[in-house]
Design a binder for these strands. Structure first.
Length: 325
DNA sequence: CCCGGTCAAGGCCTT
DNA sequence: AAGGCCTTGACCGGG
């Protein structure tokens, strides 16, 4: 138990302020197929990947200028990286320097970077092909983290997966599949409650059983819960992070509206956020809050602006603060 | 230049 | 069994 918590804000993948700086440029497989000169096509993929990483570095510089030390990298940095048609493609060779530059900058400025692989990475699938494809994708993420030269532990957040019409069975499937997940990947992962299937208590059950930190998504919890009172489970969330080198991490977003409750709004509602912060304040020394909003870093800046006017907030810098109790 | 259709990957719901 | 939808940013081609 500590006195106050230092809260740090982060955002996802791209900036609304830095123009022409996409870290997710791509080439679809269809397009790749249409190109006759495969060697040229591959070097075009490599150019795109390098450009994505270069843009990431620009984003990190922008973040650093605004004290933002927490950032989720795009999971589409290297187009077609794990596509079977490109088996044997040594993209790491092509991106090594850019990747290293990214990691060097992050380390120099003590930034926390992580990933959130796309929804088709499903570790509890009963289909072997889906499971294997998921592991392949996650091993790609391991390579990226290693290539940046930063520690692998707890860098990638994942949902539990599908329910397949039998949630208890799907949870047990996750546990049995877990034993086939490579050690590196296991070490890299965190699990997050989702908005339709696996709620906070499901994640805590798995997290405790398998030693995986639980990322609490407050918005998902509002949309999908077994027990609406998350506070009575909070100490278990805190505890799931006890062996992590990183502070507890959570996701913050606001519903778009009542009809599309599960969709992300442009901005984060600061009153809702403050109510949440007051509940958790003091439970840990530091906490990282990932802002998931349409307006990306714009939402982060707006939120900080909203908090700035309050007398129960003590600002540390442009992206972190204490809550006074 | 703008706009609508399309795109590797899973799961789920409807028909 | 098959097709549409979810969700999302990027890109392509047509107007």
């Amino acid at each position: 138990m500590t006195n106050w918590t230092r809260f740090r804000l982060g955002y996802v993948a791209m900036s609304v302020n830095v123009k022409n700086c996409s870290p997710s440029q791509t080439m679809t497989y269809k397009r790749f197929q249409q190109l006759d000169d495969k060697e040229a096509a591959v070097s075009r993929l490599e150019r795109i990947a390098r450009s994505n990483l270069h843009n990431c570095l620009r984003l990190l510089k922008h973040n650093n200028a605004h004290d933002i030390k927490f950032f989720r990298l795009s999971s589409r940095l290297v187009p077609l990286a794990t596509h079977e048609a490109l088996n044997g493609w040594n993209y790491m060779q092509a991106i090594r320097n850019d990747l290293r530059a990214l990691g060097d900058f992050a380390r120099k400025h003590t930034m926390r970077l992580d990933f959130h692989p796309d929804h088709f990475v499903v570790l509890n699938s009963p289909k072997e092909s889906v499971f294997n494809g998921s592991v392949k994708n996650l091993l790609h993420h391991v390579q990226l983290v290693d290539g940046m030269g930063i520690d692998l532990t707890h860098r990638s957040v994942l949902h539990v997966g599908g329910t397949y019409k039998n949630k208890p069975k799907a949870i047990e499937q996750f546990i049995s599949n877990w034993s086939y997940v490579p050690d590196d990947v296991q070490r890299m992962l965190m699990i997050e409650n989702d908005d339709k299937s696996f709620n906070l208590q499901d994640c805590l059950y798995l997290g405790e059983k398998l030693g995986i930190p639980v990322v609490f998504d407050y918005h998902h919890h509002l949309a999908n819960h077994e027990d609406p009172d998350w506070t009575s489970h909070w100490n278990r969330v805190v505890n799931s992070w006890r062996n992590s080198p990183h502070p507890l991490k959570m996701h913050i977003s606001s519903p778009k509206n009542e009809q599309a409750f599960r969709s992300h709004a442009d901005l984060v509602d600061s009153d809702m956020f403050m109510r949440f912060l007051k509940e958790v304040n003091g439970s840990v020394a530091e906490m990282d809050c990932m802002i998931e909003a349409k307006q990306k870093d714009g939402a982060l800046f707006q939120l900080m602006q909203d908090l700035k006017g309050r007398d129960d907030i003590e600002m540390v810098d442009e992206a972190s603060f204490y809550v006074k109790t």
